[in-house]
Amino acid sequence: MTTKVSRQVSGHVVLGTLGVLCVFPIYWLYATSLRAPGDIGSLSPLPWPLSLDNYADAWRTIDLTGMLVNSAVVAVCTAAGQLLVGLFAAYAFTVWRFPGQRLLYLLFVGSWLVPFQVTMLPNYVLLSRLGLLNTIAGVIVPTLCSALGVLLLRQHLAGFPRELLEAAAMDGRSSWATLWTVVVPALRPVLAALGILLVINAWNEYFWPALVLRDNAMVQLGIRSFMGTEGNDWGPLMATAGLACLPVFALYLVLQRHIVNAFVRSGLK
């Protein structure tokens, strides 16, 4: 019995320590952002007196409202597009057998191995020819095919009860009607979880928007504007970084289980 208790205690100690180490930097990010500008360097664990000056400062220096709106538009449009494109592709892969299927599937898997650093310059050149540089569309369009989305949805559809599809076909429903009236309703939890994951990924994306948008019009790029070669402006920097993470944490608090499941299934990208 005592060994059981000591096991329990050691378990809580190990997990608790790791948990605190993981959360501490996040706590410190928000703690610093809420200190008065004169106390930035303070080591007191609680930011007191609380102050929103850093946030006000960040808002004055950069167009945070515009950035947050742009980031939200990009994240939602990207995720919605990726879901739709991925759903169609996964549907094609699971419902039909067709010549070239394996090869085409390998094309999707293989795209994971193509480094972003290889594609960025040719894609940049193509965007500039299309006149999409410095536009929100230019950020979204090149990312609309998410191999992750296709592979995940295919995996789920592979387990989809075939009888339902056959029953729909018997009823004389077209594949298009079957997709929307049979498959999508049944797949709703999966689509929701994947959608959240894709929104988070798109929200956190930095490099591609940094290339396409010259005027720092998204919040992840805004963070960088407080980092200088001469040293950083820590207060507003932490405030902007904190704001950039806030929507994701809010989603996490509300939808924790879904998000965790989505991440576990996804591999991570």
Binding site: C22, I200, Y206
Partner: peptide, 11 residues
């Protein structure tokens, strides 16, 4: 333990 995963790399 999962929370850091959600922090944007730049942040």
């Amino acid at each position: 333990i999962f929370a850091p995963m959600l922090v944007a790399p730049v942040a």
